[in-house]
Write a protein that binds this DNA or RNA. Structure first.
Lengths: 303, 303
DNA sequence: TTCTTAATTCCAATAAATGGAATACTGATA
DNA sequence: TATCAGTATTCCATTTATTGGAATTAAGAA
């Protein structure tokens, strides 16, 4: 028996009992175990703890003193484990690190977690917006949100929503340059392009079954929202995530075009690192996020 | 791994290291063990303790806080075991319960342990004088002293000295009634008898190869020293333990008779309960006692 | 890209804990 | 006085846990 804490626990309990048998019953074990544990503790301390006959046990003077000294550490250690395991009041206490792309994070994650902040005020949300996927380990990330395929298999990922890509422009722009009817028509229209921060290359536009690299974009940025702003300004056609454009389409500020060529929607993943236990607060945020993303009201995927 | 203390110890050590491998080396174990222990602790707490990749480990925010909280209990528990194990200064601190017959205890044990009390002032000697052997368990006895055979085998006993039995009387009494030349002569002399407290019967005198029950003792007591006092008073012949009479013989206050029939000396045992560990102070007293009893100066066995 | 090193998992060997049966013993009772 | 009931302890076989080597996976450097 090498578990010092258990040894102490057994000793402390036994000290309150009239026999080893009682102690065994209270601890849900056998008298043999008690006998062995007390003996082991005695050997470790080099002192007798109980005078014992078959009819009675009596704590030693040393044992009584040791019991007094042991009580505090026992209690402290128990507190350490009990207290660290969150109880109702602070079940959700602690930090939850979230990483998300700027586009999703600023406009949607924030509103989504608002009820959560009210419901669990003990919970500190640390939302880091970054489009590059550098959050593998060092960054203290509990939950990640990404649009598109996840290459890393160390995550447990859940597809929470679908993100259609829509080619949009302002009604004015469409009136000026005409509405494209085929993808090939885009060649003659002003279009935007987005630069992949990692590779430095311009992302090709996606369509149903094929891709189309804008040959001569009129505006290029590495930031989706900046690109979107260019579209809103009426400068260019852009292929933009549905959740960004749908509110504007509904208000008539943007019009979608080439809808029959719309590509399969991109998956939106909510994921978390696979290893280690999942604290309740993290699970709570994770569940809240996935539920909220599935809510068409909060996260529109259709016009 | 159920040893919470070890878990904490591993965690605390690892928190100071740059890798699990380092921690394993410091703790004299393998990286597997570290990995498993940290994982186990994480599972018990429901929280991640280290962010870790193959190249670096980084303690979690929760881990850092937990480390702070854990430090005190770890230290306390270590103190409990370290401190309770006596260190130089108070190696001999604590109580030593000794039981001895009145005759031996009052006159000889006290002087024998005198140097010990000076040498180990931390040590509390609790000397209980009782002739009956009732000190089996409840009485907090660490060391016992008995003259004669020990029936109980639960003791580890050491024969520390021999106690010859001598038939003595005052020179005056011998002059008055004549010196006995044969054991049978005792029938016509005044003799003492000692009552066994347990059985209530009078002990027979012992001689070399036979015993002799005093047929008509002139004085009887259940206390050896009272009996001895009667002899000193010149009332009777008595068969008395050598260590009591020798000083008086040397001063000429008593004379031994019938020496050629002297029985084999009784063994004097120093013993201690077999079970449980032997604290240094008990061993110290035990050794001091056995050594002292073997010292002819302190415990005379020959005239 | 490949190479090196670390964390982790798997698995078989080793070590430890467990509880039933037997033993030894105490205190009480007939 | 002898027997009985109840307890601590030891022994031993079974079960359980721990350990470290080998293989796997991954991250950072060259």
């Amino acid at each position: 028996m090498h578990d010092r804490f258990r040894l102490l626990k057994i000793f402390a309990t036994t000290a309150q009992c009239t026999s080893f048998r009682d102690a065994a019953f209270q601890l849900g074990t056998s008298p043999q175990t008690i006998s062995r544990a007390v003996k082991e503790l005695e050997d470790q301390l080099g002192e007798l703890l109980f005078h014992r006959s078959t009819r009675q046990i009596q704590i030693t003077q040393f044992g009584a003193r040791f019991l007094q000294e042991a009580n505090s550490p026992i209690a402290e250690l128990e507190m350490l484990f009990e207290h660290s395991r969150p109880s109702r009041a602070e079940l959700y206490a602690g930090r939850v690190g979230i990483t998300a792309p700027h586009s999703v994070g600023r406009s949607h994650v924030l509103p989504l977690i608002e009820p959560l902040i009210r419901e669990a005020p003990e919970c500190l949300i640390d939302l880091r917006l970054e489009d590059e996927v550098t959050d593998t380990v060092g960054a203290q990330i509990d939950i990640g949100i990404r649009v598109g395929a996840l290459r890393d298999n160390r995550f447990v990922a859940r597809q929470a929503a679908q993100v259609p890509l829509m080619v949009v422009a302002t009604p004015e722009l469409v009136r000026q340059v005409g509405e494209p009817r085929l993808v090939a028509d885009l060649i003659r229209k002003p279009v935007s392009g987005r630069v992949d921060r990692n590779s430095g290359r311009i992302w090709p536009w996606r369509f149903n079954g094929f891709t189309h690299a804008p040959p001569s974009p009129r505006f290029v940025s590495d930031d989706p929202e900046t690109e979107f702003q260019a579209v809103l300004n009426g400068w260019v056609f852009g292929q933009i995530a549905a959740f960004l454009v749908i509110p504007y389409i509904r208000e008539g500020l943007l019009v979608p075009v080439l809808r029959q060529f719309e590509p399969p929607p991109l998956p939106l993943y909510v994921y978390r690192p696979q290893r280690g236990p999942v604290p309740p607060r993290v699970r709570k945020v994770f569940d809240t996020l996935t539920e909220s993303f599935a809510d068409e009201e909060r996260f529109p995927t259709r016009v």
